[in-house]
Simulated assay, not measured.
Amino acid sequence: MEGCSGPILEPAVGNGRALIPLLEAGFDVSGFDASQDMLDYCQAQCAERGLAPTLSRQTFETFSYGQRFDAIVVPAGSLQLIADHASASAVLRRFRDHLTPGGRLIFDLYPSDMVENLQPNIRSWQTEAGDLLTLTSQRVKTDIIAQTTVSHLRYDLWQAGRLALSELEFFTMRWWGIQEMMLTLQAAGFADIVVSGDYAFGRAPRDGDHVVTFECCQAG
């Protein structure tokens, strides 16, 4: 966030893994998320560190603030949660309208997600009470025409070796081509677009890069 001295907005703030380091670095960051559970967790993590950011429950499609921001930051591929191109274009225009003249939009995409992560993936955590939480992710659908993937996310709580609770979530992501996104940004009113591969600023993305970062400015 070099050169940014004004307020910053992080949409889809989640658990605060990007917001908290920015706050600790002295930036003025606000955030929103569609999930109240995520906001509560983020708020608790901030409170433990003596941080008190402005957080609110809002969505990409309808968020609104009475101020403009010097930068909007969308890390971790969160923009790919908007599965429809027309909806994503409208959100980008909403971002533009919430930026100061010349304000920056910075976001990550994961272009390889369309063809990777085909095998089930399992992650686990131990709770303070000694219970086990597991998350199993399984790709169930790939729509090449719509450029989307659908995965099942199964959350399980295990107590004393027995399954106590299980929840299933359908998780849809949209895949973007780099040139497609550049054209969409230009149509939404952005200019000076810099596309970087694997966080090497200004280095054009290459085959095999895990993440592609876009940085652009409100065209005014």
Score class of each variant (00 low, 15 high):
residue 1 M to N: 03
residue 5 S to P: 05
residue 5 S to Y: 15
residue 9 L to T: 07
residue 11 P to A: 02
residue 14 G to R: 01
residue 14 G to M: 02
residue 23 L to M: 10
residue 24 E to Y: 02
residue 24 E to W: 04
residue 25 A to K: 14
residue 27 F to D: 00
residue 29 V to F: 03
residue 30 S to K: 12
residue 31 G to S: 06
residue 31 G to Q: 04
residue 36 Q to K: 11
residue 39 L to C: 03
residue 41 Y to S: 13
residue 45 Q to A: 12
residue 47 A to D: 11
residue 50 G to W: 09
residue 64 S to A: 15
residue 67 Q to R: 15
residue 67 Q to F: 12
residue 69 F to N: 01
residue 71 A to T: 07
residue 81 L to Q: 10
residue 84 D to T: 10
residue 85 H to D: 14
residue 87 S to L: 12
residue 91 V to Q: 01
residue 93 R to I: 06
residue 93 R to A: 01
residue 94 R to H: 09
residue 95 F to T: 04
residue 96 R to M: 06
residue 96 R to P: 03
residue 100 T to V: 15
residue 101 P to R: 00
residue 102 G to E: 06
residue 103 G to S: 10
residue 110 Y to H: 10
residue 110 Y to F: 15
residue 110 Y to P: 00
residue 111 P to D: 00
residue 112 S to P: 05
residue 116 E to V: 09
residue 118 L to Q: 14
residue 119 Q to M: 13
residue 123 R to E: 13
residue 128 E to D: 13
residue 140 V to L: 12
residue 140 V to D: 11
residue 145 I to C: 11
residue 145 I to T: 13
residue 148 T to N: 02
residue 148 T to K: 01
residue 153 L to F: 13
residue 153 L to I: 13
residue 153 L to N: 10
residue 154 R to W: 08
residue 156 D to Y: 04
residue 158 W to C: 02
residue 163 L to W: 09
residue 174 R to P: 06
residue 178 I to H: 07
residue 184 T to I: 05
residue 187 A to T: 09
residue 187 A to I: 07
residue 190 F to Y: 01
residue 194 V to Y: 04
residue 196 S to V: 06
residue 197 G to Q: 03
residue 202 G to V: 06
residue 207 D to E: 15
residue 209 D to S: 11
residue 216 C to Q: 00
residue 217 C to H: 13
